[in-house]
């Protein structure tokens, strides 16, 4: 594992995985407000996200991952993602599901560093630095 908890991380690039146009808009605006220099990648479900990760040379530092998505939802994405050799981007869940089971299932994965409830706000972004 490339990153370990407690170490300050500089975010240069972030990926948002969400099927909702509105949520993509809101999240990317919040990230930009936090740091306008952060490059943002947008994927509309797990399948797209895996494809984009495989294609890009410059990996994002963090992935904001929704749970409820068509085709491949967030948890299914984590299954696939954890099989990959290079898990350099760490993952922060960003979802409107505050169901305990979703939280537990997501946090079981090593790559998952935090679990944020929508909407993303400044305090969430601040926490990101300590991931």
């Amino acid at each position: 594992m490339m990153h370990s908890k407690g170490k300050t991380m500089e975010i240069r690039k972030a990926m948002i995985v969400d099927d909702s146009e509105s949520d993509q808009f809101l999240a990317s605006n919040e990230i930009k407000r936090h740091d306008d220099n952060i490059e943002i990648m947008q994927a509309y479900d797990g399948v797209e996200a895996l494809e984009m990760l495989a294609e890009t040379d410059e990996k994002p530092d963090v992935i904001f991952l929704d749970i409820n998505m068509p085709r491949m939802n967030g948890l299914e994405f984590l299954e696939e993602y954890s099989k990959l050799e290079d898990q350099s981007p760490v993952i922060a869940m960003l979802t409107s599901s505050n169901a305990q089971t979703d939280r537990e299932r997501a946090l079981k994965f090593d790559c998952v560093r935090d679990y944020f409830l929508k909407l993303l706000d400044e305090s969430d972004m601040a926490k990101l630095k300590d991931l």
Partner: peptide
């Protein structure tokens, strides 16, 4: 979830 999600978004 699906009821709350568009509401949360809309508020935001």
């Amino acid at each position: 979830h699906d009821l709350r999600s568009p509401l949360t978004s809309s508020i935001g």
